[in-house]
Amino acid sequence: MQGKPGKAVYLTLDTGHMGVAPLMADILHKHKVKVTFFGANERTQTGDGSLGKDWAPWWKARAAEGHEFASHTFDHTYWRADVATDQFRVRPSAGPLEGRESVWTAPQYCDEIAKAGSRLEEITGKKPLPLFRAPGGKTSPRLLAAAKACGYEHVGWSPAGFLGDELASETHSNDQLLKKALRDIRSGDILLAHLGIWSRKDPWAPAVLEPLITGLKERGFCFATLREHPRYKAWIEQPARQSPARTAK
Rank of each mutant, 00 (worst) to 15 (best):
43 R>D: 15
126 K>D: 04
62 R>D: 06
67 H>D: 10
140 S>V: 08
136 G>H: 08
121 E>R: 13
42 E>F: 02
99 G>P: 11
49 G>P: 01
122 E>N: 13
73 T>V: 14
102 S>E: 14
130 P>R: 05
98 E>Y: 02
94 A>M: 01
66 G>R: 07
72 H>F: 13
101 E>R: 01
52 G>F: 03
124 T>L: 06
61 A>G: 13
128 P>K: 00
77 T>F: 03
121 E>A: 12
92 P>C: 08
125 G>F: 02
54 D>G: 02
131 L>T: 04
103 V>T: 15
93 S>Q: 12
100 R>I: 10
44 T>R: 03
51 L>S: 03
71 S>P: 09
83 V>G: 13
85 T>L: 12
61 A>T: 04
129 L>N: 02
72 H>G: 07
74 F>C: 06
47 G>S: 09
52 G>E: 04
97 L>F: 10
118 S>N: 14
115 K>I: 05
103 V>M: 13
125 G>M: 11
72 H>A: 08
41 N>I: 03
85 T>Y: 04
118 S>T: 08
53 K>R: 13
76 H>F: 13
94 A>K: 04
113 I>D: 08
99 G>S: 09
115 K>P: 09
104 W>T: 01
93 S>P: 00
65 E>L: 12
86 D>C: 02
99 G>M: 08
131 L>H: 05
71 S>V: 10
56 A>I: 03
58 W>Q: 04
130 P>S: 11
113 I>N: 05
130 P>Y: 02
126 K>Y: 00
64 A>V: 05
76 H>R: 10
79 W>M: 11
92 P>V: 07
64 A>T: 13
107 P>W: 11
114 A>V: 08
46 T>P: 00
119 R>Y: 14
133 R>P: 10
98 E>W: 11
84 A>N: 09
103 V>E: 08
71 S>F: 10
68 E>L: 02
94 A>S: 15
61 A>Q: 12
95 G>T: 06
66 G>F: 12
51 L>N: 01
55 W>F: 05
92 P>W: 00
113 I>L: 14
112 E>Q: 11
125 G>A: 13
137 G>R: 06
47 G>Q: 07
98 E>P: 01
117 G>R: 00
96 P>Y: 10
77 T>D: 10
123 I>S: 02
138 K>T: 15
73 T>Q: 06
122 E>Y: 13
63 A>K: 01
46 T>Y: 06
137 G>E: 14
99 G>I: 09
81 A>T: 08
83 V>D: 14
107 P>G: 11
